[in-house]
Design a protein around this nucleic acid. Sequence first.
DNA 1: ACACAGTACTACGCAATGCGCAGTACCGCG
DNA 2: CGCGGTACTGCGCATTGCGTAGTACTGTGT
Lengths: 109, 109
Amino acid sequence: MDTTQLLKGVLDLAVLAVLDRSDSYGYDVVRRLREAGLEDVGDASVYGTLRRLFKAGALNSYVVPSEEGPHRKYYGLNDSGRTMLARSAKTWGTFAQTMNDMLDDVEKR
Amino acid sequence: MDTTQLLKGVLDLAVLAVLDRSDSYGYDVVRRLREAGLEDVGDASVYGTLRRLFKAGALNSYVVPSEEGPHRKYYGLNDSGRTMLARSAKTWGTFAQTMNDMLDDVEKR
DNA sequence: ACACAGTACTACGCAATGCGCAGTACCGCG
DNA sequence: CGCGGTACTGCGCATTGCGTAGTACTGTGT
């Protein structure tokens, strides 16, 4: 099975969780997600997700120049984003639990 | 957040898990998934998934006439399907764990 | 006899989303 | 001065879940 399909709908949540720790920019979010265990996440997916979340009003954004490369477009959670994170985390939790229950039944043989 | 997107890539696994219990047909698989907690699953998605899994060689299929309605197209796991189930379940497990770890960090504040 | 609900499946097209790839651009190093 | 690392944008594709319509069979109520 491909982790690609598993990411669908969960990448939003993962990105929100990363940003909840501290404001960050695309390139760094990718790095943090990979370190956290989502090794196969594509950079284009993350940039796309950030843009989508921003457009949806969950993030604020500001540009910071960098001495070690091009400028960085930082993103941070606003109130709407924090609400979304809480709600998504809860939805994920119940969903994951449901799946685990189904699979427990399978393993029990 | 919509459970629709969460289902992506997991519906295969859920259907395989249901079929691992016993052979079944589309209409019944939908019922079982809903009872298990996936209440929002669409019937077209399940029928589509069954056809896809069959086409991929994970299922065998046979038609059984019914006295209480139209015929039923039963599906059952074959060896390839059981292998797929085992592998997918493992992938899901690691993935879910990764996500839960990330969210634990968030809750811990 | 006939409409209707429940059962069971197929087919068509849409929407969301992750990804590959190309392109732009800035930096420091050999 | 090219090259690798940093950082972002945009385009188009593939997968997959879903809504809707259509077909078809059975039993029930009127």
